[in-house]
Design a protein around this nucleic acid. Structure first.
Lengths: 232, 232
DNA sequence: CGATGTGAAGACTTTCACAGCA
DNA sequence: TGCTGTGAAAGTCTTCACATCG
């Protein structure tokens, strides 16, 4: 019953920004705003207005010339494009420090990603309850993934166990993995992996810090400025 | 006492990959490997060998033709380039669910980012101890940042409080922020922000899932395959 | 008139392909 | 000989600038 355009492929860079726009559109909508121009959205997202228009043009022509974008309609369209018109169950592998934090966080359910199960190999963790979810043994993963039609898995294990976790997820039928371990996961073609690594993020930041120090010390003239963001 | 070349600016894309190479080089080094070719590194990082060579060429010419790269030396050079030749103290703002997980995680200290302080406005959280660190009131932030020369701040607050946290960090003198809240932070030029948003990551994954479903349903022919990674 | 949607230009990134050196 | 280091080509992403339309 939806326009279901499924036009040309959306560039990765755009896909990565759509959730950001969506977030802020939802926020403005909650504040009672009904219309926003690309300039407005750009300011809120700390990007260039032309980029906003290009990005939005990939999902369709939903703006009104001379006016802007209807917030509610745009939220609907972006949501549909991101596959948010239904819930996506996720499983979390690893019930340690991070796994517990993720499970207890609640953000999964709120955002439409209910936690179908949490798994660990450690027998002492099995059957404990984290964030309302009872931890199961990793061997039960295939059953849960199949029964609950899970297609997204979260790897929250120590680095050493991450590849095994990923292998098990893939074997169970999961095709998207959010990896919090500091390892490059090897997965078959057709499986999407996104890695979020605290260490990597910190090192990118310290690289910039180190440049700033070098610049300030005046040892070398450094012409360019570090990246930053500004918004309204 | 270091070669301190400070050559041409390193591209952002490369800066984001250097920590990944570093991680895996350290791992191989621990396993006793002393030499690796660009091809080897590429396989481990699931990227193209030419990219590895280009990336490494930005930090200097540290390879040996016909042989490859000396792992230990390369680790040293990448570390230096990323500013890892000394420790960078960090402060964590927000002692809630996530803040506690980060504080207790220990990964900060291991990687050379000791936690100089953890802060919250909630009086009931102040003076509790998280991961060996006593939570202080947010008003004490400037003192700690100044005294311990902190230049990196972590925002682990709810979205509503994140901008205030960022403002306080910047006012205190922090110039790099790792933001875990679902908001686009507004900071002055010269301050680097990196945002890690669970919701954004999940939505990017569900976009790919949704495409796969559309493709499988056969409703529309979808020619291209979702991104993936493969390594040895 | 004002803001969208978009070709075209420009910037950045990746990949190729091979000269050059150990 | 084998693998690095790098110009040059190809590909992707961003930004400009303006025709177009509500």
């Amino acid at each position: 019953m939806s326009p279901q355009h499924r036009r040309r492929r959306i560039p990765d860079a755009t896909v990565a920004r759509l959730p950001v726009y969506l977030q802020l559109l939802n926020e403005r909508m909650a504040a009672g705003v009904t219309n926003l121009s690309s300039e407005d959205i750009a300011a809120l997202a700390a990007v260039n207005a032309a980029k906003v228009r290009k990005d939005l043009s990939y999902i369709g022509t939903y703006g009104t010339r001379g006016v802007g974008y209807d917030v509610e309609y745009l939220v609907y369209q972006i949501s549909r494009e991101l596959g948010l018109d239904h819930e996506w169950s996720v499983v979390i592998v690893g019930a340690g420090n991070l796994g517990q934090a993720l499970g207890g966080y609640g953000g999964f359910n709120v955002r439409g990603y209910p936690v179908a199960g949490m798994f660990d190999i450690d027998e002492t963790k099995v059957d404990t309850v984290v964030g309302g979810v009872r931890v199961k043994h990793l061997d039960d993963l295939p059953k849960v993934v199949a029964q609950q039609q899970v297609s997204i898995g979260v790897v929250a294990t120590p680095a050493e166990a991450a590849q095994d976790a990923a292998d098990r997820l893939v074997r169970a039928g999961v095709t998207s993995i959010l990896n919090f371990a500091s390892v490059v996961l090897s997965v078959p073609l057709g499986v999407t992996v996104r890695t979020v690594d605290l260490g990597v993020e910190l090192q990118i930041l310290s690289y910039h810090e180190q440049r700033r120090v070098a610049a300030a010390t005046g040892l070398r003239p450094v012409a360019d400025e570090a990246p930053s963001g500004r918004s309204a």
